[in-house]
Each structure stands twice: as C-alpha cells, then as structure tokens.
C-alpha cells in the first residue's frame, strides 16, 4: 500500500500545497502577468516592480471634495486599458470628457450608478466575475475585511483588476493606515498646489494676467502608498503630464518650462495677456 507511488503522490500534493501557501502569502495572483508600471522607479520599486493586476486596490481621497483621486484612478485605468477590454465604472456625476486628459477613452467605459451602497458592491462583484472586463472601479466606502476578501477572491479567480475609490474619507482613518483590508494596496491621494507656469515674463514671476492670480500648472497630487502587500509604503509628489500621458515626480521638474506648453488654457491666457498687457 505504502509503496513508492504513495510517497510520490504525497510529495506532489505537498508541493502543490506549498505553492498555494506561497501564493496566499504573496497575494500576487498573476505572477505570469506583468504588473502595471508607473514609469517612476521609486514608486515601482516600492510596489515591487509595479502595481499588480487582477487584484483589489483601494484609493482613498484625502479630503471630501478633493477629486485628485479620480484623476489618479483614471490615469491608472487609462494605462490598464491598453488591451482594449472595457472598464466598468460604478460612479456618480462622472464627466466623460474630463477623463480624456488622463488617457482614458470614455468610449471604453460602461457605467452604472446605483444609489444604494449594497447595489454598488453587487455591481462591482458582478463586474469582477466577468473576464471580458479589464477592470472595475467602484466608488464606495471602505470595505470591511469580509467584503474586501470576497472581492479580492473574485478578482483573483477572473483576473479582473478592482479599484475601490473612496471619495469620502472615513473619519476614523486619520493619518495612519486605517482599518484592516483585504486589498493588495491602499493609496491616499490629495491635491497639491501646482507649479507656477513661467510664461509672459512681462508680468514677472506671477505669470498670471494683470491683477489676477497666477496660471494653473499641471495637476499635482500627493500620492501616499499607505499599505502594500509585498512592498514598501511611501509618499511622493507626482505630476500628471497630459501631453505625454505619464507621471512625473514633481521634484524632478522644478523647472516647469522643461516640457512643451500645450495646455489650452495656457494658450488662451497668453492671448489674453497680450491683449491686457498692451491695453
């Protein structure tokens, strides 16, 4: 009975169990799947190569009424949507043309806006079980461990990436990592003052129109990686460059004039300054 076949069988099963444990510990489902790369070495290193796909990520807004987290999510989804699969966005008051600037084609989105929180999460789970989707984004409150685990399992089973966007930060979260979660990463995104655009030197360093405030620079976000399974936490000041569609570290761009100015608002203000300045 206990022949060599039995031992072999046992060894195979043991190896299988070990592999399963390893997978559970690491939490990286798709080891064969390349992660989503930010293009910023410091962030990618902290994540251990990039944002792993086919799992659940939480993105929390720092303050209510701060929509920087939406831009961050749209930028991630825009990069993720390269394989032409659609994305389910369970959102509210989302404005499609505003997503274009973050490299996300609104035509790739299907969207639904249930009013009840439970319905939103139902829709999210249904989406996570549909392999035809690249990703599901759900605007919701933070989940407890059980609900998050359920979504995480759905993501692992079907390879759909889930983003949970929490636009209203939980009051208890404070500065720390907040509650326990089944998600692989948790981010906190806050808007940060943009760099001055130095144009129209006639107006000096302010760069604005006469008597008015200075012009807008590129969107800047304070990106905090609060928790990351298999990686490090960190905090970065990131700028979104819509003309090239990638992230840049703000520290590396002290000089705002490095990139070509193609912001439309900027163009108009130059025209406006010309009119005001001469008049």
């Amino acid at each position: 009975m206990e022949g060599p076949e039995g031992d072999l069988d046992k060894a195979v099963r043991l190896a299988g169990l070990r592999a399963m444990l390893r997978r559970l510990e690491q939490g990286s489902v798709a080891a064969d799947r390349p992660p989503l790369v930010f293009g910023l070495p410091s962030i990618d290193d902290a994540l251990g190569g990039g944002l792993s796909l086919g799992c659940l990520h939480e993105i929390v807004a720092a303050v209510e009424g701060d929509d920087a987290a939406t831009g961050f999510c749209a930028a991630l989804l825009g990069r993720l949507a390269a394989d032409s699969k659609p994305i389910l966005w369970i959102g509210h008051e989302l404005y499609a043309p505003g997503l274009l600037a973050f490299g996300l084609d609104p035509g790739r989105l299907i969207t639904v806006d249930p009013s009840r929180p439970a319905d939103r999460l139902t829709a999210m789970e249904e989406g996570m079980r549909c392999s035809a989707l690249a990703a599901v984004l759900c605007e919701s409150d933070l989940l407890d461990l059980t609900a998050g685990r359920r979504l995480q399992l759905a993501a692992e089973a079907h390879g759909v990436t889930g983003l949970l966007l929490c636009r209203q930060p939980p009051p208890s979260a404070g500065q720390g990592t907040g509650r326990a979660s089944a998600a692989v990463t948790r981010w906190r995104i806050a808007a940060a003052p943009s760099a001055a655009r130095r144009v129209g030197s006639a107006q000096g360093s302010s760069g604005g129109s006469v008597g008015g405030p200075p012009l807008l620079g590129r969107p800047r976000w304070r990106v905090e990686l609060l928790r990351c399974r298999g990686g490090r936490t960190g905090e970065w000041l990131v700028e979104w460059r819509d003309e090239t569609g990638d992230f840049a570290l703000a520290a590396a761009l002290c000089d705002g004039s490095a990139a070509p100015a193609r912001n439309d608002i900027l163009q108009w203000d130059i025209a406006r300054q010309a009119a005001d300045g001469t008049g």
């Binding site: 389910l88 299907i110 829709a123 989406g127 035809a132 989707l133």
Partner: peptide, 22 residues
C-alpha cells in the same frame, strides 16, 4: 462577452441603467 454582464446587472432591481458615454 459583455452581454451576459449587462443582462445580469440590468435584471437586478435598482440597477436599471447601464450606460456608455458617447
């Protein structure tokens, strides 16, 4: 591939409108 998902969502009460932006 999306049709089954849209049907499942659409047949749940409270999830009537599954939309796409154009």
């Amino acid at each position: 591939a999306l049709a089954p998902l849209v049907d499942r969502l659409g047949n749940r009460p409270g999830l009537a409108a599954i939309l796409r932006f154009g």
